[in-house]
Nucleic acid binder design. Structure first.
Lengths: 345, 345
DNA sequence: GTGAAAGCGCTAACAA
DNA sequence: TTGTTAGCGCTTTCAC
């Protein structure tokens, strides 16, 4: 007892009527509809999505591609889980399902995405960890499938994205550090081409200029986004001639190992060096001294991602008027002890 | 230029031949096959999965259900990402795709699962966060779809599962603590019905008996698996008459906030109270004093999950002879400073 | 070695 | 208000 045919036979009506009843079409006798719904419920009938998709040309699924590379994996933590929840909140309003596709570490992201999209597994795509030059974007544009990038990019010309305010975070952090007397301010940015590193770097550089502080490339540390990365970062800070008095992080994963690494080099965060972390994530929440960082609602971000995406899909756009715009997502500054000292000059 | 029809027309051969060529059927002229493959490559053709699924009755997708409830969300960290990677390693050998379904926090897991399975989105299911009494299992058995549970259960009679060795961890930890002179050993287990709590509790209790130590229900703390949970746990430990001298954690999320909470009550881990954590996860890796805990390879676990599942699927069983067995996954003990002291008697 | 055609489950257009 | 039927894209059986 599986398909609509069996259900129809059991009810002794045609499959067409069953289909219409289940899909809430108006031209069905209320009595009939009740019978159909009751039988469907009793049999645990759910329409075969392949049949449905084939006929309607739509899967009612939205894909979310994440990457399992060491980098992204390590930085995941609660980030994606929180975002997923927000995305679902919006999608469930439209009976759309969120389907997550984790790209294996050993597979090329573009090719993985091409397979997913090419096989028509989803109606639209959310991609994350956007690179400054990201072949996935060109592909998605060419494929003509609606999509949104969690992270800006230079690729593909005009595209829809939502991005955290890396520039604002970098800029505000520099302001605060300068106010505290810092002049040698370092940043840690990812070693790969992920766009947030570029944006953070540019915001940092512009802020320095505003304060008439010379930009010193030696204070820009490119560091893999891995859990242990802070050790290497601390070592490089310690080894710098005329070392920085402050370090700003552009990703959330490095803080704990940075603390440990700095201690290993006899530097105490919040005393010998100011540290400003990125996100108030669970891993950073219990550091001592408490980490100065930034905060925002993961689920609200997820909701915005979903709404912005739907606003670009003809079938749903009418529900989200004016929402089809790119967004820079603000973060709230969260003062802690890790930068809470004034530098004597 | 999308479907197989267009491709066939362009090549001026029948769609049947195109299909056979692409699917590696033997009865195709090598020359023809080459032309077809080249054209498919050039057009970026990938077969529409709905059409394929409908015809073959198989989706070539394996589902992995995770939950976004506060509990699971918080305890995720890198756990699932690591497991996904291992699962993919195995699935990709068979051109199977891993598809992750995150059940929203506000949705009932069984109903969510019923929708996914009922719509035939996947050929098999991996479920996680198994409860001792888990309605999902009964449903999956009734539905007749192959599945494996990451975590044992009392539900559904005979079922396929892989589970971490919570019993061994509890037992070994008690042994070690007793050796160090502890007699009042507490445990923290989840407040809900998740099965690992039951198993951990039973292993703990049996170990106490072995050592002729009376079981004291006051030392069994049921604690929500949330990031901040350690605070409450510390408070309850401090408020206990005749408090424990050691605490064993059955989940990985509590350690950081427990450290902080204990300090707030004037207790230093590894000095005033012994702490044995569960998994060597990124959140715990940089605690001071270092956390005594346990370790295992997430991707190896994921590989085992996938292989065991495939061993139960007729189409793949031949590749995994003898693998269709339930497994208790061993953990390696990782000594740290958090329990490294001997209690004077 | 290739073409023609049936049919997977479903929805929608049309007929009654 | 309901039944009938075409056809979504694909694989596979059967002729040839």
């Amino acid at each position: 007892m599986k398909g609509i045919k069996q259900l129809a036979r059991h009810l002794d009506i045609s499959i067409g009527t069953v289909s219409r009843a289940l899909n809430g079409k108006p031209d069905v006798n209320p009595e009939t509809r009740k019978r159909v719904l009751a039988a469907a419920e009793a049999f645990g009938y759910a329409p075969n999505q392949s049949g449905r998709s084939l006929r309607q040309g739509t899967t009612n699924a939205i894909g979310f591609m994440i990457e399992l590379s060491a980098d992204t994996n390590a930085s995941s933590d609660d980030f994606f889980m929180g975002v997923f929840d927000g995305v679902q909140t919006v999608l469930s309003r439209h009976k759309l399902d969120l389907v997550v596709f984790p790209c294996p570490a050993d597979q090329r992201p573009v090719e993985y995405l091409q397979r997913i999209v090419g096989r028509r597994l989803v109606d639209a795509m959310i991609i994350s960890a956007t690179l400054r030059n990201d072949a996935r974007i060109e592909f998605l544009k060419k494929a003509g499938i609606p999509f949104i990038a969690l992270g800006r990019s230079n690729s593909g010309g005009d595209l829809r994205w939502i991005d955290l305010d890396f520039e604002g975070v970098a800029s505000g952090s520099v302001d605060r550090l300068v106010e505290h007397g810092h002049k040698r301010i370092a940043i840690a940015i990812p070693a790969d081409d992920i766009n947030l590193g570029h944006v953070f770097h540019d915001g940092y550089r512009a802020a320095l200029e505003r304060h008439d502080i010379a930009y010193d490339p030696a204070l820009v540390y490119r560091q893999e986004r891995i859990v242990e990365g802070g050790h290497g970062l601390a070592a490089r800070i310690a080894a710098t001639d005329n070392p920085p008095t402050a370090i700003m992080l552009s990703t959330e994963v490095l803080a704990p190992s940075l603390y440990r690494g700095l201690e290993g080099h006899g530097m105490v965060p919040g005393k010998d060096i100011a540290v400003i972390g990125f996100r108030d994530n669970p891993r950073a929440r219990y550091l001592t001294p408490s980490l100065t960082c930034h905060s925002f609602s993961l689920s609200a971000l997820g909701e915005a991602v979903a709404e912005t995406l739907l606003a670009d899909m003809p079938a749903y756009a009418k529900n989200y008027p004016g929402k089809a715009t790119n967004k820079i997502w603000p973060l709230t500054f969260l003062p802690g002890e890790s930068d809470d000292f004034v530098l004597p000059h």
